[in-house]
Design a protein around this nucleic acid. Structure first.
Lengths: 211, 211, 211, 211
DNA sequence: GTGTAATCGAGACGGTACGTCGAGTCTTGTG
DNA sequence: CACAAGACTCGACGTACCGTCTCGATTACAC
């Protein structure tokens, strides 16, 4: 959204962008968003909290949702880069998902995530941005883990991995967003266990759905 | 939200509520919401489309989200009441989920569902209402199906059914809301198949997650 | 506005008008109007204070201003009917105006009078009603007093009495409505004195305005 | 109400107020007010007619009445600044009042004046503003004229000038607001004549009101 | 007594304006 | 150029009041 490295050939003219302002805006936005949700925070609020002019925010972020995306993204990558190889599918998944779970439950991320998802429904460009930053990276990590497991023979070849990923992440998002039941560490383990059973190869094949 | 059967002992006084207006409001709201999403529809829009005063809407629905809940709810129950017993877990699940899938994909429900979920994050009363109307009924149906399957020995006794339900519904909501991959009938079947494999009892127990 | 004696030929049918309601409405209206002014009182307020249905008010008074007219009129006639003959112009005027002055200063009539006058500016029928009830009667009394004084030779024949009435009442209304100076009993006497001087016949005529 | 010259020591920051908008608002307001009266004009009307946002109006004028005050004030000063000295009290008064009379009768000012007076009844601050702008200046002019006349011996020393001013202005306002009789140029002259007679010194003192 | 007819209460209704708020843009002067 | 300040447009918000309406329940007179 805010490219820090402009075209190399261009000479930089005029006053340079204030890094201080940028950080203040993102900090203030993140704090306010987690506290009151996207709908409860106005751009004036962010500007006031960051000690910054509203025009400065709009110069760098086209709308509130984009700002929210950037503000929340900084924490979001936690544990995503660490590609631990524990040697087993279950261990790898747990190592991948546990830090994320910790993040999700530490502060009310669901508030803002819900609003971002809603915004994505009617703005394809925003949807792409959201997916690219918040969904795809974790999905790619999980996919790599599954591929390693397939290589080790831990996962049956007939298993549709993309569907499995949806089961895994879908279950977690489901509890996160709907809150019909607690999103606990126990739940995380149960989800992984159930998925493991579903993908582990065995002698007799599963009973297919009659159509 | 709007109880049609007030306290029986109370004598009815004053001009009765106009059923015509109520229906017109819900119709107009449903149509507009599916067309433009919650954020794209104003109360004035609904009032104008329904040929009704804005005050009349506010008299019965405290906010736009509540109205949306009522407006969408009327279609939502589709296929939920039909408790087909096909004789197999997979068949039952498919019979339950297929009509719902058809509803979800026929019109852009995701737009409004997302907004309702977002609202639920910061309003516990609304969250309860949303769950009670949009989530719990379908979940209860699925639970009944699983219990029948357990009775038939189709599902292992150690399987945590609530987690399984989250895998099932979570996967579908995940694709519905995130749109990272199409929510197709094929996907629906794959989800059911994978879940079936995960819950079907077998000789050797599942590999537990190493902790 | 509300004719208590309908066409004689008409037979009275149906439930008769509740005199209790009528009185309660006028009482409540007068009290509220003097307390909060016309703009500060809603028809719902009056209905609630009178323990009466809003429809009942509208059945008998076409609009709020008409109700205000009736509500205030009951006090307004004070001292207007008493046609004391003190024997002198000054004495008669004082006897006429003093009770009215007392009424005006006892409670904040100016609030409502101002609103009625304003309404009269854009509704000729209302203006006629207002004049006929609030202005003409007192004017007619004063006119009679002046005519008696003319008969006694207290007032010059060349004096334009209607203009003199405007000076008299105008001065009082001026202080009542504008409040730039107190409307005191002293002021009332000074006004009468000054008018007396202006109308008393003398040897040399007044200096006419050069035109 | 809207001070054009803020504290001198303060540096002007931010976008300056649009003089164009300010003038358009006052023009539109004056035109609409004289055409339909205060009650017949909504803030949306003014905003639309002035090609301006409603919020901009509310930023500078707290309520409709304040706007009306400013909008009408621009014409109101007509002939007030010209302090003609015709040499006689009658001539001076006529020179002062004739232009005002002309203004009052050219367009339906009474509509709005009535509403302003009504508002003043329940808002002391507004009352002060109204008096300071619409009443006091003309009164001060007339007072100066009377004091010159006293210096010339045209007015008796015992005459209470403030009461005389109330007779003069009161009579005019009375006909303006009540409309029981036409506010004509002839009436204006008669009022001045009668007042002149009342204040001109003579041999025998006036007959005091018997108490 | 049994219509018939007008009243009454309660309160929902369409409509209009209110005054406020937030998003996002624009216009100054200053660094 | 970037930035702070803040005025601006636009559009929606939720509320309040107006005057109308639809109920069921009363209350009179007329038959």
């Amino acid at each position: 959204m805010t490219d820090p490295t402009p075209a190399a050939g261009l000479v930089k003219r005029g006053r340079p962008r204030s890094e201080r302002s940028r950080a203040a805006i993102l900090d203030a936005a993140a704090e306010l968003l987690l506290g009151r949700g996207l709908g409860g925070v106005s751009m004036d609020d962010v500007a006031a909290a960051a000690g910054v002019s509203k025009a400065t925010i709009y110069r760098w972020w086209p709308r509130k949702e984009s700002l929210a995306l950037d503000a929340l993204y900084r924490d979001w990558a936690v544990g995503c880069d660490a590609a631990l190889d524990t040697g087993s599918l279950g261990g790898d998944l747990l190592a991948l998902l546990r830090p994320w779970y910790a993040l999700l439950t530490r502060r009310p991320y669901a508030r803002v995530i819900g609003a971002l998802i809603t915004e994505a429904q009617s703005d394809p460009a925003f949807a792409r941005e959201y997916l690219a930053r918040f969904v795809e990276p974790r999905r790619a990590r999980a996919l790599a883990i599954f591929e390693r497991a397939i290589g080790r023979g831990e996962v049956g070849l007939a298993v549709p991995v993309d569907v499995t990923l949806d089961l895994l992440y879908g279950a977690i998002y489901h509890r996160l967003l709907h809150g019909h039941a607690p999103l606990s560490e126990r739940f995380l383990e149960q989800v992984i266990d159930t998925v493991l059973v579903g993908v582990t190869p065995r002698a007799g094949g599963p009973t297919a759905v009659p159509r």
